[in-house]
């Protein structure tokens, strides 16, 4: 479990990281390293160059800007977990973060790294999707913004180009009508979920509007369950469960049938959370 030889470059500025990505076709960015280093040590990947972006300033801020909460890519999970700003303006993320790995992983792992890695069973991509968030990336042509719905393309595949550096994620700040729910089932706390669900909605009298249900661990990416969202908007939980059209695969922790069953259980539990008023 020693990585194949690689070169290491510590980038001091964003432009430097982007340029370095351009110079080496086989380069990878190193942020928290919580997934990357394991794959290197297991020789599942062998990039020739690691570009360490931890020294780039200004990528770890948490700030409210024009009704949106912006979280810098290098923000550590532990930092986000303790952030009162996130707890207040992005309660879904605050609920999800304690489920990410273990304390040691959350101390090093970054929010940007988790989004860019796009593990289909990870919590944060689903949160971003459920919150209708967006991602800032900087490449050779400058900065651009990508909607969450357009960002996650496939298994560990995103809209980021080979020279793009993810710099921040942005989600709409919660209002008094925002309702969120989060639940996941993992064999042990901190494991990747067998199935998980991140949800948001806007309370509209006794019913919901803008219901967004993002399941994870049940496909190649986090997935919206749109038929179920429609059913849930009208307050019919049974219909929402019946309308789930997920098509998961068997994996080591559960069969497809179990995952589908558990997705329905989670939907009921999360629907209950959505119906509770915000504290």
């Amino acid at each position: 479990m020693k990585p194949a030889p690689f070169a290491y470059k510590r980038a001091r500025a964003l432009e430097e990281a982007v340029a370095a990505l351009g110079e080496h076709a086989d380069a990878r960015l190193l942020a928290g390293g919580q997934s990357l280093i394991a794959t290197l040590n297991m020789r599942l990947s062998a990039p020739r160059l690691l570009i360490d972006i931890n020294g780039i300033g200004g990528l770890d801020g948490i700030a409210l800007k024009a009704g949106k909460l912006e979280i810098g890519a290098l923000t550590r999970h532990a930092q986000a977990e303790r952030s009162e700003v996130i707890a207040r303006h992005a309660p879904l993320i605050a609920r999800a973060i304690p489920h990410i790995g273990h304390a040691a992983i959350r101390n090093r792992g970054t929010l940007g790294g988790s989004i860019a890695f796009a593990d289909p069973a990870a919590e944060l991509p689903a949160c971003l999707l459920a919150l209708d968030g967006e991602v800032d990336a900087t490449g050779p042509k400058g900065k651009r913004t990508i909607k969450a719905a357009d960002f996650f393309k496939g298994l560990f595949e995103t809209a980021l180009g080979p020279q793009d550096v993810l710099t921040a994620i942005r989600v709409p700040a919660a209002t008094k009508d925002t309702r969120v729910g989060f639940a996941e089932l993992a064999r042990r706390h901190g494991d990747y979920a067998i199935v998980g669900l991140a949800a948001s909605a806007r309370a509209d009298g006794k019913s919901f509007a803008d219901v967004r249900l993002a399941f994870f661990g049940v496909g190649a990416t986090a997935l919206r369950a749109k038929k179920a969202e429609t059913a849930l908007a009208s307050g019919n939980v049974d219909a929402a469960v019946a309308a789930l059209d997920l098509d998961p695969q068997d994996d080591l922790q559960a069969t497809a049938a179990v995952k589908k069953h558990l997705a329905g259980v989670l939907l009921r539990r999360v629907a209950k959370q959505l119906m509770e008023a915000r504290p």
């Binding site: 297991m42 064999r187 042990r188 706390h189 901190g190 494991d191 990747y192 080591l252 922790q253």
Partner: peptide
């Protein structure tokens, strides 16, 4: 939790600490 899982060709399927579940304190 713990189970060394093999397929019918004798390949161990979960030989790592993420997929082989040891009991944890929580």
């Amino acid at each position: 939790f713990e189970h060394c899982r093999y397929d019918e060709r004798g390949q161990m399927l979960n030989g790592n600490m993420a997929d082989y579940l040891v009991p944890m304190a929580v």
